[in-house]
Amino acid sequence: MIAALWHNIDYAACVVLFCIGLYTVITKHNLIKKFMGLNIMETAVFAFIVATGVVEGGNAPIMGPGVEPPFINPLPQALILTGIVVAVSTTALALGLVIRIWHQCGTIEADELREAE
């Protein structure tokens, strides 16, 4: 098990990053920090999916004269480009909401907001 994990250390690192993000989301009260935690989780998953596409010693999947196989798997990269755009979009909306919350309540600390309710 440990040996197998060592071989997949890249994936394990993504899991650790994922948990760091989750920790931030759960424990931080500041809404922007909460959202940064979410971004860390997203990044962890993106890194994981890109890592599934890695081939040892592979080249960038751009064809043309003078390039040799093996190539990196292009599919995960294409997926994650889409994933990044999705993450950016979510971030934009979250920040918009935070701006409004700040204007209306004068604070973006979750515990103070709960009291204000």
Binding site: L5, V15, V16, V55, G58
Partner: peptide, 26 residues
């Protein structure tokens, strides 16, 4: 966090080896 991390680590340990050209993804 442990409830999330432990199953995930067990799962990724069993995934096809990272970087291997024989993995199903490739």
């Amino acid at each position: 966090l442990l409830a999330v991390a432990v199953p995930l680590l067990i799962a990724v340990a069993d995934l096809p080896p990272h970087g291997s050209p024989d993995a199903p993804a490739h």
